[in-house]
Amino acid sequence: MAARPFRLIYTILLPALTLWVWLLVIATFSLRWFSIERPGPPVREIFPYGEMRVGVDASYAPFAVATAEGLFGLDIDLAQAIAARLGAPVRFVNMGFDGLYDSLKTDQVDVLISALVTDYSRTNEVLYTLPYYNAGLVLVSRANQPLTRYHDLRDQQLALEFGSEADQIARRWQRRTPMTILPYELPSYALDSLRLQQAQAALVDSTSARLYRREHPTWNVLFTPMTDSLYLLATRRDRGQTWEAINRALAELLDDGTIEALIAKWL
């Protein structure tokens, strides 16, 4: 009978303890292994020409604009930040919007960074990255009179740009909730209307709203996203390594606040 506790120790507790020790050792080594910062693949493996060739239509402020001094804008800064993260030189290829995807297909460029949204008709040839900016519509209201859903607009006056996507959506809302639409020529006029107390809310794209707020920094307003229009980068589907490297760099830039800072710089 006295041998029973020892038998219990030998047959159950000791093996269990050994197993736990081994698991601990493996876990410790795994954590260490995965936390080691390894250099990414060589630049030539990511970009066959040894540089990150970026296709951009530099006629779209404030994302990319061509001047006599060079190219400027959020997309340009973003491309430079990604290239720096990957240790690659960057070269911009400025072209018209219509030619962007064909330039990728014909290997003129490695990546498109040009205020693009997903084009589902191209996903058999193109890989899109994480989004870096949402250019969708925002409902703008005064912070002390917040309106955050279209139901809140019942019997209110909503300012917007005539004939825009905002107009299209507001007319759909109007079928469900009675509201007065105030159509203006420009998104900035719609925001003027809200600021000058002529409307209770404005529905405009987030870029217009952000640019307007820069001009009126003391204006206390609330932006409520209503639709998504996600800007992302596009690479060739048959260059998985390029996509992976760029997407990883983009994720790091999103995580460490770089992209937020770039957006704040330009918008």
Partner: peptide, 17 residues
Amino acid sequence: PTNNYPDNFTLVNGDFQ
């Protein structure tokens, strides 16, 4: 829609407005 400036060459929007 392209969700970019080419959309503003059109005469009507997606809903035919």
